[in-house]
């Protein structure tokens, strides 16, 4: 419980840092800047600036969950897992913890954003057309990213899983640049779907209407999370706890 409180505190601080960082640059943002992501096309200096602003929270949640699975299968973790009902129930408890981390992150981001925008009375430049859907996509995308990290941790060292997951996220954002008309790329490199600039939530003439409809997108993300969870269940049933 103490560990979870510490994680929640760190995530709140991350949300704070992210907001201050985003508000300090001179770029245009919506009312929920953490949902904006990176516009496409974009010049390199702007790409870096937008990317860092979006990526801070993803990296933080990924880092907080570093070793969440693989370390628990070693040493002391065996005393825990043996006292559980089954391997699958143990894995489900880990997945639930991941959801808690993601929801606390997003909740912190919402609180920080609302608080500062109310007290500072700042007006966002860009219009976010569907904020609720934007938040939903954001939550589902982070969960899918962390699910990739989870399954990788069941196959390799936690540090390697962390690096591979984060490389995939950064590659996804940058590789789509230049291929923005190909809708399928946004599904293969799904971290793009969390970005208002890329999922059609923010008016962006080059992409508007291209990736949608929204129902298809959130269904895709849910299927992706369930698929990764199923793969993890198959793996945990076969894993040797040496």
């Amino acid at each position: 419980m103490t560990q979870f409180r510490n994680d929640a505190f760190i995530l709140f601080i991350v949300a704070l840092i992210q907001y201050v960082y985003v508000m300090n640059d001179s770029l245009a943002h919506s009312s929920f800047p953490f949902l904006d992501g990176v516009p496409t096309p974009v010049s390199y200096p702007h790409l870096v600036s937008y990317l860092v602003g979006w990526y801070i929270s993803i990296a933080a949640s990924s880092f907080i969950l570093l070793g969440h699975i693989s370390d628990s299968l070693l040493d002391y973790g065996k005393y825990i897992i043996l006292r559980g009902k089954s391997r699958i129930s143990w894995l489900m408890s880990k997945a639930i913890h991941m959801w808690r981390v993601v929801l606390i992150l997003v909740f912190s981001q919402l609180i920080v954003t609302t608080f500062f925008q109310t007290t500072l009375d700042s007006n966002p430049v860009l219009e976010l057309t569907h904020p609720f859907e934007g938040i939903l996509f954001y939550v589902l995308t982070i969960m899918a990213i962390l699910s990739i990290q989870m399954i990788l941790e069941l196959h390799m060292k936690s540090q390697l899983a962390f690096i591979l997951t984060n490389c995939y996220v950064l590659l996804s954002i940058t590789i789509v640049e230049g291929f923005s008309q190909k809708k399928v790329l946004f599904h293969v490199f799904f971290p793009n779907l969390s970005m208002g600039f890329r999922n059609g939530m923010i008016a962006n003439p080059t992409l508007q209407e291209i990736i949608g409809p929204f129902n298809e997108l959130w269904l895709f993300l849910v299927v992706m999370i369930l698929f990764l969870l199923c793969l993890s269940v198959i793996r945990i049933k076969k894993i040797e706890l040496m």
């Binding site: 065996k78 005393y79 897992i81 043996l82 559980g84 009902k85 089954s86 391997r87 699958i88 049933k237």
Partner: peptide, 11 residues
């Protein structure tokens, strides 16, 4: 079952 339901162990 995944594990014996009631087990104590030292490894």
């Amino acid at each position: 079952i995944s594990f014996p339901p009631s087990i104590g162990i030292i490894i």
